[in-house]
Every structure is written in structure tokens, then in C-alpha cells.
Nucleic acid binder design. Structure first.
Lengths: 319, 319
DNA sequence: CCAACCTGTGAGTATTTGCCCATCCTCGTA
DNA sequence: TACGAGGATGGGCAAATACTCACAGGTTGG
């Protein structure tokens, strides 16, 4: 008499045969049913079994395949709502190559929507590069709001504030923030934020449907420092306090917690919009930014990420 | 054979994405269409493209009892070092279905080795189909050497000479044989073989660690004849002399002995490498090739075989 | 011995996929 | 600028596939 195991092994054999006929030989299930002398439904079950039992392996031989794979893992590892991985070009030192195009594509996906949306934009080199990749289009029904001030320390318009570029290219209504990135004191910040126009912009930012931000590192070449928004002493103090990165000027430590005190008391940027009710996408890559990106993901300061293969690997490598 | 259309890299990227989403992530084409922002029909086209371009590879990972059994019996009956049996699809007239994938898998096993190897390759339709299934990989440390000439009777590159395809896909160093498959005379062959470069290639072939060859039949549609390497008269003469098959152009009789005289005096291919010190794998199946395969196994012209169920049965049935 | 249970089956039905065709867009040419 | 070839697109439809359900045959445990 046949034991259950033998029967099941036989069944797996049949499943393997059916799977082979289906996937490798390209038969239809009807043909398989005829060949194996069973009903089409049974054939379907066998084919299905061959997949669910892992008898059939499918592999994608294309550079993109690796990106998709990394993306899926990142998405589940950090419970992200959006992940986009672009192939790395190890030869190119550019911090924006590929990323800019991918970021622009994602921004355009939102702009193409017919229903009016509020799109919040941070600042930084990566974001600027992405905006430059945007296809000009007519989107007067959307609103684009800046999360950060657009006044550089010397009083001029901050170079890497990109809100005007966006509004220009896509013809949407724009809401810049006529503020310094970092106020001179907490009091000044409060004063500025209480101005009616700015208050409205802040409220608009809080209701953004989608947000795109860059991630800044706080190493020796921290963009905040290089662009003169913070002094060397302030940078050192932040580093000492454990800061590993910043979003729109908000410095945070390796846990993703905002650093208390220091420059954070004076950052005039809008708070990062809710990750519960909206999508906040970080666009960033690179060794230097890795700790910052990881921290932001861990504490869910963002729930979307556009990065490259190498960075994705780095994010998955640890822990 | 369909002419190779130049397809933009971007489209292949998209195809890869779609293929990944479909086969790996298990999305429906509707979902893919939504995610990529295209119509379902376009998604379907991309998925289909990813298969037809060979981006998606499917492999059956299960020892089907019947194939294992046949394989074990063949292995012991003919003292083989390697046997691989794939399921048969009795209805399909294709001479390569399934076999190509299995052959590619075995070739890949060798290519994946870290130590440098010399891999010799014969010629033929089956082998070409197998090569097309190879996954691109970087193997500059291996050497791939052709056993047969790559010049067709009309002077062009022989279509079924596959050495270039291999080298291309796996980036290894390749050693083709700039020779006709069959020289016009024994003298010409000697002359050609004495050329330094060719001599070196021949010596390399003799030292191959592993060899993959097809088996040609010598019936009315013998590939050697169909491809114009031998005349009808020569084919008839070979048949009369008892030839039942050929490896790389070397015709042999039912005992597996090389036919003396006739075209064998002029075959410009390298001799089949040693079965004592290396692995020589025949990849072949089909009723027509049965006598040839049997003869080659009997006299141990090869010590490895990749074939299908039906052929395996045929080999075991007689004697 | 019987009832509960499990496995596998076929029928019917909803969903998904493959393919044809009209149309649109692009680009080279007259 | 007009025009035609060639390729991409999306609608529609038939084929193929996946899923649900009720039931048959056999096993298990009382």
C-alpha cells in the first residue's frame, strides 16, 4: 500500500512535469492535460503547485532585475510606500546621475494627475538636478510649496532652493518661503513663522500630498556648512551631539531622532509632513549620506526613497 | 531565425521591469500597467518582450523521478561521468527544447568556477540553442576554444559555429579556428594545421577541461550535408561505409569507430579531447540521432550526455 | 461500523492574457 | 509643407487561466 509520502512525491513529480511542459516547453494547460491524461483543472493545479513548491525558478537577467530586487527588499525592510532604485555607475562620481531622472519621473507622475495636489519640495543639489530633468508641462491646478526658506545667509536667494524652478517649468502655483533657512534665534523664527503669509504657507506644507526632500550629510563637507547656513562650530557641535544627517535643515541622530537644541532650535523650515497621511520621498544616494538615509528610514522620517543600487545595498547590509 | 531588431536600451529596461513585476513579483499585467503608468496592452507587450529577448529564464529545479531513474541507468550502462535527462514533450518537433536550457545550466556550472578552465565547444544547432540560454556573466579567467572551423563552404562565417556567441555572453577569452570545417584535401588540412596560431589553438583544445559537442546524424538530412560541408555523394559514401553519426565532423560507424578515408581524411576539426582526463559532454536528442549517440556512448567517444527521456529510453531499449 | 475528515476532482464562473486592428505619432523624403 | 512608411498605442474580443464550490473516494478514530 502506498504511504502518503510516496503519493506526495509522485504528485510533485507530476507537478514538475506539468511545470516543465508549461514554462519550458510552452504548452497550454489544455495540452498538458491531454498529454498527462488528466483534466485541464488538474493540470492547472499541478502547474500552480510547481510554482508554489518552488520547483520552477524564474530569474531576470538584466541589470534592472537587481534593482527591482533590492527595491523590494528595502520596501519590506523599512515598510516604505515607495522605493525606486536606479542602477549604479561605479565609475561616475556624480551624486545625481540617474537619480535626477528617476526623481523627475516620480515628480512627473504626480504632476500628471488631473486632481489638484499639493506638492512639497525641500532643497539641495540632488533635488535641483531632479527638477532640471522635469519635462515642461502645464499644471496650473497643482500647488508647489517649499519646505525651506529661500534666503541665503548673505541675503541673496539661496542657490539650491528650487521651488522657483519647479513652478517655472510646470506652470503651477508656487509657494516659496521668504525666510532664511536657519533663523538667527528661536525667537526670530517664531516671529517669522507667525507672519500671516508664512503661516499660510506652513499650513499648506503640512497638508502636502507628496513631499520630495534631499538628505544632507553632516560630515566635514556637510552642505549646510558649505553653503554657509551653519558655522563650523555649529557643525562640530551637531556632530558631537550625534547628528548623522539632515532633512531640510533638521538635523537628526543615528536613531532618526531630531537633535534637541543647537541649530534645530532655529531651523526655519516647515516640519516634515506627516508620513501617516502623505508620501514623503527622500532622493539621495552615496556613501556619505548612508548613515543619514538609514536613520531617516529607521525612524520613518520618510516613507519613500529614491536611491541607487550601491546605496540600497549599503542600507540592507547592516543590521 | 528572426532577424535581430535593434531595440532601444530604454525599452529593454522597461521590459525587464515589467518582466520582473510579472514573473518575480507575481503582479498581473493590469497592476504592472498601473505601476508603470502605461496601458495594459503595453504592459503585455513589455512582458512578452522580456521573454522573447531572453531576459527571463525559467528553470525546473526538481529531480523528476523518471528522469533520474533513466539517468542513473544510462550512467551505469555506459560508464558515464555526467548524465542529465530532461523531460520529453512528445508533441513538440523542436530538436532543442529543454535540452538548450539544461545544456546552458551545465555550461554555467563550469563558468562559475573561480579557477581558470579551458572549455571546448563544438558546433551545431543544439549547441547554439544552449548558448543562447546562457546567462551573461563575467568570466575573463576562462578560455573558450572551438573544436571546429568557423568558415562555411561559401567563405562566410559558419552560422552554427557558436564560439563567438559564448565569448560574447560570458566575456571570456575565445579561441576560434579560422578554418573551413572540412578541408579540400588531407594536404590542405596538414598545411592549415601547421600554422602556428592554429597549432596553438589545437593544443589548447587538447587540454580542455570540459568539452561540449553536438551529435550529427548522417541520414538524408544530415546537418553536414544540409549546411553544405559535404556533398551528397560524400554523404552517400559515408553512409555506405557504415557511418551513423558525427562529432565535429568526424564521422563514425555503429561501433563508434571513426570511418577511415572519405571526408574524415579532410576534417579540419580538432580531435575530440581525451575522455580519460577530461569531460566530453554530448548534447543531443531525437530519433534520428539515436544510432549516432549510441555509437558514441558505446565507444566512449564522449563520457557525458545531456538528452531527453525519449532518447534515453531508446538508448537503454536495445541490446 | 460509522461519522468526521482529508485529498483530489470536475463543473461552472470570474479574471487575466494574447492577439487583431484601427488609429496616432514620428520621422525621413519629395 | 505635404505625404507615406513604420512603429507604438489602446480598444475590443476570444482564448487561456485562476478561483470557488460541491462532491467522490479513501482514511482515521471512536
Amino acid at each position: 500500500m502506498a504511504t502518503r509520502q510516496e503519493i506526495s512525491a509522485n504528485r510533485l513529480d507530476d507537478a514538475a512535469r506539468a511545470g516543465w511542459l508549461y514554462y519550458v516547453a510552452g504548452n497550454t494547460q489544455d495540452q498538458i492535460a491531454a498529454k498527462l491524461g488528466i483534466s485541464r483543472q488538474s493540470a492547472q493545479r499541478l502547474v500552480s503547485l510547481s510554482v508554489s513548491e518552488g520547483l520552477i525558478k524564474m530569474r531576470l537577467d538584466h541589470p534592472i532585475g537587481r534593482c527591482m530586487d533590492l527595491g523590494a527588499r528595502l520596501k519590506s525592510r523599512f515598510s516604505l510606500d515607495l522605493v525606486e532604485i536606479v542602477p549604479s555607475d561605479p565609475e561616475s562620481p556624480s551624486t545625481t546621475i540617474g537619480l535626477a531622472e528617476a526623481g523627475a519621473a516620480e515628480i512627473e507622475r504626480w504632476l500628471k494627475l488631473d486632481e489638484p495636489r499639493i506638492i512639497a519640495i525641500g532643497t539641495g543639489r540632488t533635488l535641483k538636478a531632479a527638477i532640471e530633468q522635469l519635462t515642461p508641462m502645464e499644471c496650473p491646478h497643482h500647488k508647489v510649496v517649499s519646505l525651506t526658506g529661500n534666503i541665503a545667509p548673505d541675503g541673496s536667494a539661496a542657490f539650491y532652493n528650487v521651488i522657483f524652478n519647479v513652478a517655472d517649468v510646470v506652470k503651477s502655483r508656487s509657494f516659496p518661503m521668504p525666510l532664511p533657512v536657519i533663523a538667527s534665534s528661536a525667537q526670530e523664527r517664531e516671529m517669522l513663522h507667525s507672519q500671516p503669509m508664512i503661516r499660510e504657507t506652513l499650513e499648506l506644507a503640512a497638508r502636502a500630498d507628496v513631499t520630495f526632500v534631499g538628505v544632507g550629510d553632516l560630515g566635514p563637507q556637510a552642505p549646510l556648512y558649505e553653503d554657509g547656513f551653519i558655522t563650523e562650530a555649529e557643525l562640530k557641535a551637531l556632530q558631537k551631539a550625534g547628528a548623522v544627517g539632515e532633512l531640510c535643515g533638521w538635523a537628526f541622530n543615528a536613531d532618526g531622532r531630531l537633535i534637541e537644541g543647537f541649530t534645530n532650535d532655529r531651523v526655519a523650515s516647515a516640519p516634515i509632513p506627516s508620513r501617516e497621511t502623505s508620501l514623503v520621498v527622500a532622493i539621495a544616494k552615496g556613501e556619505k549620506k548612508l548613515p543619514g538615509i538609514r536613520a531617516a528610514l529607521n525612524r520613518r522620517l520618510v516613507n519613500g526613497l529614491i536611491t541607487d543600487e550601491l546605496t540600497a545595498e549599503g542600507l540592507l547590509a547592516t543590521e
